[in-house]
Amino acid sequence: MSGQPASTDAKTPIRAIPVRHWGQQISGVIVLAALVAFIYAVATNENLDWSVIAANLFGPTILSGLWVTISLTVLSMIIGVALGVTVAVMRLSPNRVLNSVAGGYIWAFRGTPVLVQLLLWFNLALFFPRLGFGEFGLDTNTVITAFVAALLGLGLNEGAYMAEIVRGGILSVDHGQSEAASALGMRRRSTMFKIVLPQAMRVIIPPMGNELITMLKMTSLVTVIAAPDLLNRAQVISSRNFYIFELLIVASIWYLALTTVSTLIQMRLEKRFARGVAGIAPRRRRILRNLKPGRVTSPVREPADRPDVDRKGGAGS
């Protein structure tokens, strides 16, 4: 497959016996056999009742739990991102008060387990029985429901992690960009929101996608404060019918589906924020073009640094 054929006539395709990857082929067979054995064991296992999985996968209880998991994830991420951006900007501010407050917040919320934070919010009534001032107070337990406690616990914890991600993104933007904005007379706020943050997004998006997936799975922790999320609903059902393993599989299928969707969203966002960065968009297009059926790769036009994907695509056509 090298660009320089042995034959002097470039038009004659090379006829050669390709390198045999024996190790790859043997290990592939072993892995495949193990997979088949595993699927067989699962499919024929008498201890696993597939009808229970099928019956519950789209059952109303599971779907209600799924809805709670999705809304918890989305709302916590919104709180986390909003807090993260605010705290990151505060952390980079020359104002010492803002700076220290941001530092303290990150220190406290990254330094304690999120499970502990969830329990603290849920049990807030033990510490502050009433919230508010004087007559305008409310009973803490009516305000901080399991869902609100879950939201506070997950969102505030996420904010601390996002703050560090956003701060890294902001620092990755060349100082000349904000200097040019200053020289034009733009104020700090405008410079941050119109110049620095949009460019920081490119660096922020990939770890943010990871955070979203982590968050999806982290919501299962709220089971400990009896918030009715996906895992909690699955456990409620299995505590009645004792099909513990089946319902855990139901939950797993949904978690997998959700993370797959988030990964796709992340890929789209990455593409969106790659605007103005040389090389990314054109290359993607070139790969797609090469994958089209009927495409003949011409060694003359294509540069030597073509990624491997192109070649596979070209050879397949």
């Binding site: 040019a180 104020r187 949009p198």
Partner: peptide, 25 residues
């Protein structure tokens, strides 16, 4: 203060060695 300084800069244009064009625009 910072905003007053920004206002002063409005009437002074600057061109940098490294251009510093906003890369996302």
């Amino acid at each position: 203060n910072e905003n007053e300084v920004a206002d002063q800069r409005r009437d002074i244009g600057m061109v940098f060695q490294r251009f510093n064009l906003f890369a996302h625009m």
